[in-house]
Amino acid sequence: MIERDEDQPLLVAEGLSKWYGKQLGCREVSFALYPGEVIAVVGESGSGKTTLLQLLSAQLAPSRGRVRYCMRDGATRDLASLGEAERRFLFRTDWGYVHQDPALGLRMAVSAGANVGERLMAIGWRHYGRIRETAGDWLARVEIDSGRIDDAPYTYSGGMRQRLQIARNLVTRPRLVFMDEPTGGLDVSVQARLLDLLRGLVAELALAAVIVTHDLAVARLLSHRIIVMKDGEIVETGLTDQVLDDPHQPYTQLLVSSVLPP
């Protein structure tokens, strides 16, 4: 939750543009994300949401513009100026990245405990007992039965895999998590459980997050603010309830009115 209005942004996107050759990925995207704030990026497939997420998380280099990030020491750095080692360090500690397909974010053939413990070892944890204990705690927090800690995620259901991926991301206490359609491809009942879990964790850990989703219900439940994208550009932004209950742009009105009420 937002604590102060004086604090400085965690991440600032300035005029971010990306072309793949002549194909536009996204154009002139600017916004600021504050500590503890959750922003949902919504729009249909091909609107540039995933490109934006990859630019923000330094997995893609922008064609124009830049991303500034406030490091743990308080210094604000241009992501493009970071060395490979610094960028990797951010990924291992201060950031999480939750993929729609958990297989991309997990090592499917090693145990669940090792999947979570690996992140801790990457930041220098060496004590086996403590790593296993912390991994066990996190599996419990994402509601995975402790009896499954030694099983590999390929034996898990889709919902369990996604919860495991979240545990693996959060175990290092990141300040910022990127999520790409975190509930995509899951059954509705499994989605509800995951959403509720995410909602609790985000609030409890005061996480900042950028969540890409085409599901407006997910955006309503998890986000403080919404960015609506179409054809690579931001068409509307605002408070989540403002954008969903009083959409001003034709495209946003179309999106909001296209949802079938349950």
Partner: peptide
């Protein structure tokens, strides 16, 4: 700005809507 409104809601502004928007499982 949206941030100011969120802050205002947290500190000063309460709202009881006509219907409860229930979150599953809570």
């Amino acid at each position: 700005q949206p941030r100011q409104i969120l802050l205002l809601r947290a500190r000063a502004l309460g709202y009881v809507s006509q219907f409860l928007r229930a979150v599953p499982r809570v």
